[in-house]
């Protein structure tokens, strides 16, 4: 691991000052479960690290608000996952957290850091001799034409097909969450759906967050569709694995017909992927198994298979369909 200088910030303002003063190669450290892991692999090699894990001002969360839920960026995944109100009123959000990682990692990982979790693409993580445009821009992509069983079917480019690995951001995408950030120029808010970028021709730039901006909190507008929601996650094993396919789904009904539908899919795309067309296909009709299957197929429209991952198109469509029926049963 490359040597780095280490400092602790006491306030968010101090953290942003420190990263601005540090210049290029300075990184925020929160739970460490992604950054420190990748530093051990020399995939991340910051010169300076600003530890923000002690910023108590960002550690709280509040799920009792009438108009919105507010999550501090440093709230721990495990604490939020077990919040009684969240489990009752927004089960998809709770499930997206407790179905991720292990309890040890959830005790460490922060909600803000989790949004920025980097891909599990083996060619990215394990370095030379493999090419990776994300790790080393311009070097090529060993995943394209390589072992791509877990790689993205949606949102890829000729330069990168690395899957966005997170669950929480997928559920947040379904609920139109907003991310508040602080940078040297002050505060701004980014819709969650605009936080993550598709790789295009610059896979190394993964988000619209500037390197000197700190996530302060995540806000989720309250919705009645929250109760009839689920985060359905299909894995190679039943627990502690990344998604082969997942779906965050929420529905509401009026007179037996769907009045609101929210669908985002995970494990299948280069970023959290909202399936608006699939949502629209459900509105105004009863939610039958046939309608759910059709919506699932629509959510995967445009999916581009590689050598080993075509099975995940059908798997993804069925995951969405099953999630819709699970959510319906909770209405």
């Amino acid at each position: 691991m490359q040597p780095f200088s280490y400092s602790r910030a006491r306030t968010a303002a101090e953290a942003v000052e420190a990263i601005a003063a540090g210049g290029q190669g300075t990184r925020f450290l929160a739970g460490g479960t992604t950054l420190y892991d990748l530093m051990k692999l020399n995939v991340e090699a910051p010169r300076r690290v600003v530890d923000v894990s002690g910023l108590d001002e960002l550690a709280d969360f509040d799920t009792s608000g009438e108009s919105e839920l507010v999550f501090g960026a440093l709230a721990k995944m495990s604490d939020v996952a077990s919040d009684e109100r969240l489990i009752r009123d927004y089960p998809a959000l709770s499930e997206s957290l407790w179905k991720a990682a292990s309890q040890q990692l959830r005790n460490m990982a922060s909600l803000g850091g989790n949004l920025l979790q980097r891909t599990r693409c083996a060619y990215f993580r394990f370095g030379e001799p493999f090419q990776c445009n994300k790790r080393k821009p311009g070097s090529g992509c060993a995943a394209i034409g390589g072992i791509d069983r877990g790689h993205a079917l949606l949102g890829g480019s000729e330069h990168c097909i690395a899957t966005y690995p997170g669950d929480w951001a997928v559920a947040l995408a379904a609920f139109d969450a907003v991310v508040d950030v602080l940078g040297p120029k002050g505060r701004r808010s980014i819709p969650l759906q605009e936080l993550h970028r598709e790789p295009g021709d610059s896979p190394d730039i993964e988000t619209t967050l500037a390197p000197d901006e700190l996530i302060l909190r995540i806000r989720v507008p309250a919705t009645d569709a929250g109760r009839a929601s689920t985060y359905h996650k299909i894995r190679d094993r039943e627990s502690y694995a990344f998604a082969l396919a997942s779906a965050a789904v929420a529905v509401a009904f009026e007179d037996g017909a769907v009045s609101e539908a929210r669908i985002a899919i995970g494990g299948l795309a280069t970023r959290p992927w909202r399936a608006f067309e699939a949502e629209r296909s459900l509105i105004g009709k009863p939610l039958t198994e046939e309608a759910a299957k059709a919506a699932g197929a629509r959510a995967l429209e445009g999916a581009k298979p590689g050598h080993h991952n075509a099975f995940r198109i059908e798997l993804g469509a069925r995951t969405v369909a099953d999630a819709l029926m699970i959510a319906k049963a909770r209405a």
Binding site: C121, A122, E128, P129, R235, A241
Partner: peptide, 15 residues
């Protein structure tokens, strides 16, 4: 998932 892919040889960590 992707972690379970065959890993590069042991010299992958450079020196």
């Amino acid at each position: 998932m992707e972690d379970q892919q065959p890993r590069p040889p042991a010299h992958r960590f450079g020196g």
